[in-house]
Amino acid sequence: MALIELRDVTKSYKRDAIEIPVLEQVSITVPEGDFLGLMGPSGSGKSTLLNLLAGIDRPSRGTIRIGGTEITSLSERALAAWRARHIGFIFQLYNLIPVLTAFENVELPLLLTSLTKKQRRDHVMTALGIVGIADREKHYPRQLSGGQEQRVAIARAIVTDPTLLLADEPTGDLDAKSAAEVLTLLQRLNQEYKKTIVMVTHDPHAAERATHVLHLEKGTLVEQAAAAR
């Protein structure tokens, strides 16, 4: 069953009077439970595609349907609620809030739910447990290594049990060992917890962990490789 359906998605930005095309007529279908890798050189449009899937940007043309919801037609307010419920986003630079502890960072998306304080605590500790960093719940981001920060960021992304996990170069700022750990963790989330993941990466080693890899170049899909594993 398809979780993500992109139909003829085009995105362009306006710089002064000039229109700069970023994505052109991209159509993708991603089944539920897939781990999709998006590769391509800088400026190929892969991060833009991820932003469109996350509902933090809107296409110029085309439709995006995720889990049966056509997000391109949602209002800003409805889109925010949809993101809170369905999207877990992992950033390259982790983007943890520096004044919050690991626990509080992970709890952040749960503040938008109607869960009680105790329920929120249970969810946060479960998420921190899954990423193997429960013992660092009281640490602030500055007290964690890059790999640990990214684990906290992953815990924040999964704490609401979202429909779709989106990762934008999640290993781009990590050393090889931490990168491998993070990729293993993502693979585990995909295989054990059946999370659908779309990961943007430059790194062919990282892409190898995905079940499918798509290549973007100059805003168009140039290759669709299915890696049978």
Partner: peptide
Amino acid sequence: TEIAVMRTLGFRA
């Protein structure tokens, strides 16, 4: 950035 991250997480404007 933090505000953008919070918006990404689903915080309304």
